[in-house]
Nucleic acid binder design. Structure first.
Lengths: 137, 137
DNA sequence: TGTAATTCCTATTAAACCGATAGGGTTAAT
DNA sequence: ATTAACCCTATCGGTTTAATAGGAATTACA
């Protein structure tokens, strides 16, 4: 299941991409328009800022803005920051690999083989989708 | 993330499909060979029995057996029983649909569109995989 | 210079879920 | 009768999730 954090984060990024002009976009505005709890959204935008997708301006008339073009923000990157591993099991994760406690040999594990297929098909979607695709009309 | 329940369930099904002969397969044997906590596995096999994939024989020399040919057990069905919805958000789930609280219009939601793609690509894998594929050498 | 508006930081919380365990009841083979 | 297996219900500690609370720091602007 997609966490609320990820869902809210994607909606916020989309919102910013759509309305962005000269002025940064405020948390309160996003929260109101997308029906996201404001304090929760704050923490999500903080993590998007710390991971480099967003920049911020503090103080009055402050807000958030994109640091890259929407067409250069890949879903693979966003999903890994917000949701974590794309793979359904650590033993098939490209970026968060962990060996299974059970499984003496991964190559003989039926679950392993299946989950590699799922990972690859999901990756194929995320690699071919950018924020521009999400925010485009 | 794939739950342990699903992972263990898939491994158990695979195990049963591989060793199945005349006698039913016992929980203790599966647990030992696949390194699965026995009591936990019991509850998983119970749900697979109640959902029709497995039959059981009680008492001494009892155990579990498949009720269909491995080639007729689709991953879509197994995953929905063990893991629940295949979709990452309820609003794109075919079998567990729920409307979002936010989202006035699904068709304009960027997350919705993306998650439909993910769902379809994942479904494509599960629809084309049976237990025979998992247990096959 | 002061006030309001906004991001930033830390902590806490309630609820849900997950993985596992406990203890015994029921059934069937020998 | 004994034993070996499935069956049922309950519980429990740990983790994660989603959200809230309260204020500190920063900036615009009158």
């Amino acid at each position: 299941m997609l966490s609320k954090k990820t869902k809210y984060g994607l909606k916020a990024l989309t919102y910013i991409a759509r309305v962005e002009g000269d002025a940064p976009v405020q948390v309160g505005e996003i929260a109101a328009n997308e029906k996201i709890p404001q304090k929760f959204l704050e923490s999500i935008l903080t993590s998007l800022r710390k991971s480099g997708f967003l920049g911020s301006k503090k103080g009055k008339h402050g807000g958030y803005y994109l640091r890259k073009e929407p067409s250069e923000i890949l879903m693979t990157e966003v999903m890994r920051i917000l949701e974590g591993p794309i793979a359904m099991v650590p033993c098939v994760s490209l970026n968060f690999y962990e060996k299974c406690d059970d499984c003496p040999d991964e190559n003989e594990c039926s679950v392993h083989k299946l989950m590699i297929q799922v990972r690859d098909s999901t990756l194929n979607v995320f690699r071919n989708t950018t924020l521009a695709d999400l925010s485009g009309s």
